[in-house]
């Protein structure tokens, strides 16, 4: 068990280092640099050089890279080139806004998707199944930002129940939820759609397994068969999808933040691209990658809890 955990953690760290390196160089491949982005078309060549010196862009890229890694080890994400504020402050300031959308979307997605998928599987080829399949297909086909606009029209524009602009006040959870509900719903609907379909197909597969027939033959109640034996076995793909989806949601939140004019990580990235703010870009991307890696790690570890067959031996097995 501990070896398994150690191995996963090590793999995660290596992935992170590779990703950090890739990101560091990738953002610098973008044409133009922060000095040019800030000064636009107006500046003399000498002025640009002065600015580059101030921004620390005149030292060789390799030195910048080593310095970046060194700072990172000390937990320092650097100072934004365009805003002059520590990136960690920028991130912490907007983290609640992104968190409420991602976590909210996951909760909404799971709360709708898992029960809908189970119902759909149990009532296969009946009205409820067709309805769930139709709605989930629509949910998959529509991108999050389209769903967002479709939600805005009735709930924000006509009924006026929810605000459309801004993220609310960070010191008030009620305000965060009020402002975050529609964006979270927009993300959650897409996720619910995926989960419905996955839960349904997994469940159908499991219901055809021998052990379910055996359980039924033993005379167990329907309820016990469906919710104990079947659900537990269906959880592995569902947890995997939840993990993957939380990573997708972070990406989706960029479009959602723009549509809802909310502050958040996505807006930081967009601004970082237009301003060629390498420090902000690499740090926010790093947070994304770290998040994805941690989610994967947690999912891997959860398998052990869900499926006792996954143990030490499996490392050598695969």
């Amino acid at each position: 068990m501990w070896l398994y955990v150690l191995e996963r953690v090590l793999r995660t760290l290596i992935t992170l280092l590779l990703a950090v390196t890739l990101i560091f160089f990738a953002v610098r491949v973008l044409p133009g640099d922060p000095a040019e982005a800030l000064m636009g078309r107006h500046m003399s060549a000498e002025g640009l050089e002065t600015l580059r010196r101030q921004m620390g862009l005149d030292v060789p890229v390799w030195d910048q890279y080593l310095q970046f890694l060194g700072n990172l080890l000390r937990g320092d994400l650097g100072i934004s080139l365009a805003l002059g504020q520590p990136v960690s402050t920028l991130l912490w300031d907007v983290a609640p806004y992104t968190a409420i959308v991602v976590v909210g979307a996951m909760l909404i997605g799971a709360a709708i998707g898992i029960p809908a998928g189970i119902l759909s599987a149990i009532h296969r080829n009946r009205a409820i199944d067709y309805l769930a399949r139709f709605i989930s297909l629509s949910g998959i086909s529509l991108p999050g930002f389209v769903i967002a606009i479709l939600l805005m029209l009735p709930l924000a524009v006509y009924l006026g129940w929810f605000p459309m602009v801004g993220g609310g006040r960070t010191d008030s959870p009620a305000s965060l939820v009020h402002f975050g509900f529609l964006p979270a719903l927009a993300g959650g609907i897409g996720m619910a759609a995926y989960l419905t379909r996955l839960t349904r197909s997994t469940y159908l597969e499991i219901l055809n397994e021998d052990y379910i027939r055996t359980a039924r033959a033993k005379g167990l109640s329907d309820r016990r068969v469906l919710y104990k034996h079947a659900l537990r076995n269906a959880l592995i793909p569902i947890v995997t999808l939840l993990g993957i989806y939380s990573i997708i949601m972070i990406g989706d939140s960029i479009a959602i933040e723009i549509v809802f004019s909310r502050p958040g990580f996505g807006r930081l990235i967009m601004g970082g691209i237009t301003q060629r703010d390498y420090v902000v870009l690499q740090s926010v991307l790093l947070v994304y990658v770290a998040f994805a890696a941690i989610v994967n790690l947690v999912v891997d570890l959860l398998y052990v809890l869900i499926d006792p067959r996954i143990k030490l031996g499996r490392i050598h097995g695969d």
Binding site: I149, V157, G160, M164, V165, G166, I258, V259, F260
Partner: peptide
Amino acid sequence: IRFMPSATSRELALRTGEI
């Protein structure tokens, strides 16, 4: 002064009175 890059959101927000 609000930064709102999405054209759709600006239009809808004008209608809700948020801008």
